[in-house]
C-alpha cells in the first residue's frame, strides 16, 4: 500500500479550488485558517509533482455540442505500444488507453459529424500498421463526468 500523496490540508486546498480555480490564495488561506505562504508552497509542490493542474474547461455548447466517440481497437500485440504513440499524436483524439481484456487500445474523442468520425477511422486509424479492427460507439448522453479528476500526462511548466 502506497502512502497517500495528498495530506488533509492538500485535499482541502484542492477541494477549495475544484470548480473555481480563480479563488485567490488569500481567500483560501483565510477559509482554512493557514497563511497565504502555506497555500502558495503547497500548490507549487502539487503542480511540480504533476498531481494538480489548473486548466480551462469549455462547455459543450461553446465547442458546438460535439459527441463523445469511443473506439475500441483490436491490434497485433507487438504493435500496441507504437500504436498508442501514433494515436496520441492525432489531435482529434483526446484519450488513449492501453487496455487489457476487451481490446488492446481504447481511444476517445469529441466529434461534430459522422463524416469526421468516418474520415478519422477509415483513412487514419485503420490504415495504421497493426490495427485489425475498430469497434465504434457514440455517446448519446453523458450522465456523469468529473472534470476535476484526470491523468496528468504532461505537467505544464510553472511560470515562476
Amino acid at each position: 500500500m502506497i502512502a497517500p500523496r495528498l495530506d488533509d490540508l492538500d485535499r482541502k486546498i484542492v477541494a477549495a479550488l475544484g470548480l473555481d480555480a480563480r479563488v485567490s490564495n488569500r481567500q483560501i488561506a483565510a477559509d482554512l485558517g493557514v497563511t497565504e505562504g502555506t497555500i502558495r508552497t503547497r500548490l507549487k509542490r502539487l503542480q511540480q509533482e504533476g498531481l494538480v493542474q489548473f486548466t480551462v474547461v469549455t462547455d459543450f455548447r461553446m465547442a458546438g455540442s460535439p459527441n463523445l466517440v469511443m473506439m475500441g481497437i483490436h491490434a497485433d500485440p507487438g504493435r500496441v505500444s507504437a500504436l498508442a504513440e501514433d494515436l496520441s499524436a492525432i489531435e482529434e483524439i483526446g484519450c488513449v488507453i492501453v487496455l487489457l481484456g476487451r481490446y488492446n487500445l481504447m481511444a476517445m474523442g469529441l466529434f461534430k459529424s459522422v463524416e469526421q468520425v468516418d474520415d478519422l477511422i477509415r483513412a487514419r486509424i485503420k490504415t495504421l500498421p497493426g490495427v485489425r479492427d475498430v469497434e465504434v460507439s457514440t455517446a448519446i448522453h453523458s450522465f456523469k463526468y468529473d472534470v476535476r479528476m484526470a491523468r496528468i500526462t504532461r505537467p505544464k511548466p510553472l511560470d515562476d
Binding site: V57, M62, G94, I97, V147
Partner: peptide, 13 residues
C-alpha cells in the same frame, strides 16, 4: 487500463 497514454478533456458539460 494498463497504461493511460493520453487524457486530455478540455470540453465537458
Amino acid at each position: 487500463a494498463a497504461d493511460i497514454v493520453k487524457f486530455e478533456f478540455n470540453v465537458a458539460p
